[in-house]
Nucleic acid binder design. Structure first.
Length: 288
DNA sequence: AGCCAGGACAAGT
DNA sequence: ACTTGTCATGGC
């Protein structure tokens, strides 16, 4: 990949394993939307727009200093995904999935935002998750532009109180969100310390929060805190690994990048293997 | 109209 | 240690 700066745009040429559609639509983030071929969203306290043509990606209105300070890490651009894919290609199943999903990059999102986003995500659907997060930002986030809001800090959500979150219509998740905000704002949990901990210890820390179980913790660890071995098991991934690898599957099968394998499987299951799966699921139900 | 959604939790075996 | 009902809301 080569990086250029031109008219205050960053231009990334010869990108490998970087596809904006796959990266933004694979279910890891909720604040980017595509319009006229351009993705726009808010991350790391900034609004950015970017588009892709072939293996060229343009990040608009971004100085080289900002690219280096934020977006190089955010888009995980220094990681060799081709090597990771080779390492993960243990079997025909994962190879088939990767054929369709090799453009995914695991975004290094803000840990606090990721934790909240996946607290909201539980037993919920993606369109509504996006709506709730958008209204949370509108309600409590700092205005960083015209009708553009940063993700609110833990302090802001904490001082809003659980009652202050009812406008979100996020149901029983409001008290979970508030508990997370309270524990982080009051320093009971220090998210900045978690990346230095072993995976299981970091996970236990997150699970002290009400409403944070195995899956939500793994999402925060994988998408926001840099733990690539975290393997979120939602209904799709559970079904996939059960069908592909059997009931005794363990994430350790995929090794240190299990989380990335999980994302390939998740996106493949949802986007490409849907019909085949619902057919199997139906016949299984009938037989049972 | 009714099932489902990137689950967690408590209560019951 | 496993299973089951419940939780609040709206997308499709």
């Amino acid at each position: 990949m080569e990086v250029f700066s031109e008219n205050n745009n960053i231009i990334l040429r010869s990108c490998e394993n970087f596809d904006l559609d796959q990266t933004f639509n694979c279910g890891q983030c909720f604040r980017f939307e595509k319009a006229d071929g351009v993705y726009t969203g808010v991350a790391l306290g900034r609004q950015i727009s970017l588009m892709q043509e072939g293996d060229t990606v343009i990040i608009y209105n971004t100085a080289p200093e900002e690219f280096e300070a934020k977006w190089r890490a955010y888009f995980d651009l220094d990681r060799d995904y081709a090597a990771i894919i080779r390492e993960l290609s243990f079997d025909e199943r994962i190879r088939t999935a990767v054929q369709k999903t090799s453009g995914i990059r695991i975004l290094r999102q803000d840990g606090w935002e990721t934790l909240c986003a996946f607290i909201i995500s539980q037993n919920n659907n993606i369109p509504r998750i996006k709506k709730i997060i958008a209204s949370l930002c509108r309600l409590l986030g700092e205005a960083i532009g015209e009708n553009v809001y940063a993700f609110p800090t833990a302090e802001r959500i904490c001082s809003a109180g659980e009652a202050g979150l009812t406008a979100l219509n996020c149901g029983y998740r409001a008290k979970y969100l508030y508990d997370a905000a309270k524990k982080v704002a009051q320093g009971e949990i220090d998210l900045t310390r978690l990346p230095k901990l072993p995976y299981m210890e970091a996970k236990q820390e997150l699970m002290k929060i009400k409403g944070v179980g195995d899956k939500v913790a793994d999402c925060a660890l994988l998408f926001g805190l840099g733990f690539y071995e975290a393997f979120p098991m939602d209904v799709w991934v559970k079904r996939a690994v059960r069908n592909y690898y059997g009931a005794d599957f363990k994430p350790e099968y995929f090794g240190r990048y299990a989380g990335i394998a999980q994302q390939y499987l998740f996106y493949y299951e949802r986007s490409f293997a849907k019909k085949a799966n619902s057919r199997t699921a139906n016949t299984e139900k009938v037989q049972c």
